[in-house]
């Protein structure tokens, strides 16, 4: 069989990236890796309830091997860049695919979470930038003490506005994951009608677990459980 197919590019990777389906596959894989990070991050955060000694020890543990830390950071950064570049390019394509819109359009088959991915995504990104400046570099945290992670978390979340913004971002993250965690399987072609209901339930389950896990920290600080 010769490759006479229309418009085929020379390189497989370039060809895949050029297609909308290839970009969605990249979004699925990068999204999944980011999900694994978020899950691990949430589980790590729960150690705040074990007191300052344990929490700071955990924070130090993550920094024992700077090469490893930076390897993970660089991988995550690449995933974020791929996820956003693909999303932006696809969003632009969405505009060209329907130049004239409808006078009236009623969504009947989609969830609120799935329709708002283009909103939840950028707001979550803005939150991550703030979050890094607040608790990783400390630029936005007036009481930041390098190395005393427990103190920094409490100093930050004691401000109800910071906690509210954090909880709001986690609501959006939960919505984003609720659709994304299922959608990634269809984008990669790993779905079957028999397993779709279970996949959707699992996506909702993980979205809720991650949401509750993350918001437990600011709520713990505000209620005085963590002090």
């Amino acid at each position: 069989m010769s490759s006479i197919a229309i418009g085929l590019r020379e390189n497989k990777a370039v060809r895949l990236w050029d297609s909308t389906n290839g970009k969605k596959a990249v979004m699925a894989v990068s999204g999944f890796i980011l999900f694994l990070f978020v899950l691990g991050h949430m589980l790590g955060n729960l150690q705040v309830f074990e007191g300052p000694a344990q929490f700071n020890r955990y924070a130090q543990l993550l920094r024992t091997l700077p090469e490893g830390l930076w390897a993970v950071r660089i991988i995550l950064l690449i995933m974020v860049v791929l996820h956003i570049v693909a999303a932006v390019q696809l969003a632009l394509r969405k505009r060209t695919a329907r130049p004239i819109g409808y006078a009236k359009r009623k969504p009947i088959g989609s969830t609120y979470a799935s329709r708002t991915m283009y909103w939840s995504g950028p707001i979550i990104f803005a939150f991550i930038v703030y979050h890094l400046l607040d608790l990783t570099s400390g630029n936005l945290n007036p009481n930041f003490i390098e190395g005393d992670v427990y103190h920094n978390v409490i100093a930050s979340f004691s401000n109800p506005f910071v906690s509210a913004w954090y909880i709001f971002a986690m609501v959006l993250l939960a919505f984003h994951l609720r659709h994304g965690l299922w959608s990634m399987f269809n984008s990669l072609g790993l779905t079957h009608p028999r397993y779709t209901p279970a996949l959707r339930r699992a996506a909702t389950f993980f979205a809720v677990v991650i949401f509750l896990g993350f918001i437990s920290v600011p709520i713990g600080v505000l209620t005085g459980i963590v002090k």
């Binding site: 909308t20 696809l90 088959g109 989609s110 969830t111 799935s114 299922w182 984008s187």
Partner: peptide, 11 residues
């Protein structure tokens, strides 16, 4: 356009 798996088509 691209597919975002939201399911409006199926409905």
């Amino acid at each position: 356009g691209q597919c975002t798996n939201i399911g409006e088509c199926v409905a």
